[in-house]
Amino acid sequence: MCRNMDEGTLTRTKEMLDDIHKRKIDMSDEIFVINVGGYIGDSTRSEIAYAIEHGKKVKYLEEE
């Protein structure tokens, strides 16, 4: 955890970043997932689902 941020601030910051990523997806024709070693974290999974729901093409560095 960041030393200078309380839990509430960290939560709001994460929510803000998640929203920014979704707005970037909205502006894109497709997204490219950098899934080194096949790893995809929870936030990225959420962004992939959002992209698919909004008709965006999804490409992966490594096959799923």
Rank of each mutant, 00 (worst) to 15 (best):
G55I: 01
R45T: 08
V58I: 08
E47S: 08
Y60M: 00
E47Y: 14
I20T: 07
E53K: 08
D6G: 13
M1L: 11
M27L: 12
D19K: 09
S46R: 03
N35T: 05
Y60H: 00
D6H: 09
Y60V: 01
E53S: 07
E15W: 02
M1G: 13
E62S: 06
I52E: 14
R12Q: 15
C2S: 15
G37E: 01
A51T: 05
I48W: 13
S46P: 00
I40R: 00
T13E: 13
T44V: 13
E30P: 00
D18S: 15
K24L: 13
R45N: 11
Y50D: 07
S43V: 14
K22H: 02
M27S: 09
I20D: 11
Y50T: 00
K56W: 06
L10T: 09
T13C: 08
C2Q: 11
F32W: 06
G55Y: 06
F32S: 05
I40V: 14
T9K: 05
D6E: 04
L61R: 00
E64C: 06
I34W: 01
R3A: 14
K14Y: 15
R12P: 05
K59T: 09
C2D: 14
A49F: 05
V33N: 06
G38E: 02
K57G: 05
R3W: 11
A49C: 00
D26N: 07
T44E: 10
I20N: 07
K59A: 04
G55T: 03
S43H: 12
G37M: 03
E62T: 01
K24P: 00
E7P: 01
N35C: 02
I20R: 11
I52Y: 05
R3M: 08
R23A: 08
K14S: 14
D19V: 05
E62W: 06
K24M: 12
G55R: 03
T13A: 12
L17W: 11
M5C: 14
I20S: 08
G41R: 05
F32K: 02
E15F: 04
I25F: 14
A49K: 07
V33R: 03
M16W: 07
Y50C: 03
V33Q: 03
D26K: 03
K57I: 05
N35D: 01
L10V: 14
V36N: 10
K24F: 11
K24A: 12
L17N: 09
I31R: 10
C2K: 14
E63A: 10
D26F: 08
V36M: 12
M16K: 12
N4V: 10
N4S: 11
L10G: 10
V58A: 06
D29V: 06
V33C: 01
T11V: 13
K22S: 03
E30W: 12
G37S: 07
E7Y: 08
V36G: 09
D26I: 02
G37P: 03
K59Y: 10
E30I: 08
G37Q: 02
D29A: 12
R12Y: 15
K56R: 09
I31C: 15
A51K: 08
E62V: 08
